[in-house]
Lab assay of single mutants.
Amino acid sequence: KNAAQIVDEALNQGITLFVADNRLQYETSRDNIPEELLNEWKYYRQDLIDFLQQLD
């Protein structure tokens, strides 16, 4: 998997990933985040941060 796929997957589930103060953050109206997504975000944290910062 790559960062773009993970960001896309999150968006499809109503979750927006973004970077604030060099930390990976998310916004969602969901009550909870599936644990497998959280684990994936932790595992790919630096890739996601790098990818999202390139988009800014």
Rank of each mutant, 00 (worst) to 15 (best):
L52N: 00
L38C: 09
N32L: 09
N22G: 15
P34E: 05
L37Y: 06
R30W: 06
I49Q: 04
N2K: 13
L55F: 12
I6Q: 02
A3R: 02
Q5D: 08
E9N: 06
F18A: 05
N22I: 05
K1N: 04
A4L: 06
Q25D: 05
Q5P: 02
L11M: 11
Y44V: 03
N32A: 11
Y44F: 07
D8A: 15
V7F: 11
K1I: 04
D50A: 14
E9W: 07
D56M: 13
R45Q: 14
Y44K: 04
A20T: 11
I6V: 07
T28Y: 05
V19N: 02
K42Q: 14
L37M: 12
L11D: 04
F18H: 06
F51D: 00
N22M: 08
L11K: 14
L55H: 12
T16Q: 09
A4T: 05
G14C: 08
L24E: 01
D8Y: 15
T28S: 10
K1L: 04
F18E: 03
A20Y: 12
L38V: 09
Q13L: 15
L11I: 09
F51S: 01
L24Y: 01
Q5W: 06
R30M: 10
A3V: 09
E9D: 08
R45I: 10
L55R: 15
Y44D: 01
S29R: 11
Q46H: 09
D31M: 09
S29I: 10
L48P: 00
T28Q: 03
Q53E: 10
P34S: 09
Y44Q: 03
L48E: 00
E9H: 07
D8E: 15
D47I: 15
A20M: 12
E27N: 13
R30D: 06
S29G: 08
E9V: 04
P34A: 06
Y43V: 12
L38W: 07
L52A: 01
D21I: 04
A10I: 02
L38N: 03
L52F: 09
L55N: 12
N2S: 15
W41I: 10
K1V: 05
E35R: 08
N22A: 08
R30C: 07
D21N: 11
L52T: 00
K1F: 04
V19E: 03
D8T: 14
L11V: 07
K1H: 04
I6C: 03
R23G: 10
I49K: 03
Q25W: 15
G14R: 04
S29N: 12
L55E: 10
Q54Y: 10
L55K: 14
D56P: 12
A20L: 13
Q46V: 08
T16Y: 15
D47M: 14
N2D: 10
L37W: 08
F51A: 02
Q25T: 07
D50E: 13
T16P: 02
P34C: 04
L24C: 03
V19M: 06
S29D: 13
I15H: 03
E36S: 12
Q54D: 10
L11Y: 11
A10Q: 01
E36W: 09
K1A: 04
E36G: 08
T28I: 04
L17Q: 01
I33Y: 02
L37V: 06
I6E: 00
Q53G: 10
E35K: 09
N22W: 05
A4Y: 07
D21A: 06
N2C: 13
E27T: 14
Q5M: 09
D47F: 08
V7Q: 03
Y26V: 05
R23Y: 10
D31F: 09
D31L: 11
R23M: 15
N12W: 10
Q46K: 10
Q54P: 09
L52K: 00
E35M: 11
P34M: 03
A3M: 12
N32F: 14
E40M: 09
I33L: 08
D31P: 12
L48Q: 00
Y43M: 14
Y26I: 06
E40D: 11
D56G: 14
Y43I: 13
D50Y: 11
R23V: 14
D31G: 10
I6D: 00
D8P: 01
A4F: 07
Q46F: 08
E27G: 07
D21Q: 07
N2W: 08
R45G: 07
N32Y: 14
L17Y: 02
E27Q: 13
R30V: 08
N22F: 07
Q54M: 12
L17M: 05
D47E: 15
D8G: 11
N12R: 15
N22H: 08
N22Q: 08
A20G: 07
L38M: 10
N39D: 11
T16E: 06
N22L: 07
L24D: 01
P34N: 06
Y26C: 07
R30T: 07
Q54N: 09
R45K: 11
I6K: 01
D21L: 06
Q53S: 14
Y43Q: 13
L17D: 02
S29Q: 13
Q5H: 05
Q13R: 10
G14Q: 05
P34D: 06
I15Y: 09
Y44I: 03
E35S: 10
K1M: 15
V19D: 01
L52R: 00
L17H: 02
Q54V: 09
P34F: 04
Q25I: 08
D21Y: 07
D47G: 07
L24V: 06
L52E: 00
T16A: 07
L52Q: 00
W41Y: 05
L48K: 00
L55V: 12
Q13D: 05
Y43N: 10
T28L: 03
T16I: 15
Y43W: 11
Q25V: 11
K1G: 03
R23P: 01
A4M: 09
Y44N: 05
D31A: 11
R30Y: 06
W41Q: 00
I6T: 02
N22D: 11
L11Q: 09
I33E: 01
A10R: 01
N22R: 06
E27L: 14
N12A: 15
V7D: 01
E9T: 05
L24K: 00
D21V: 05
E36R: 09
W41E: 00
L52C: 01
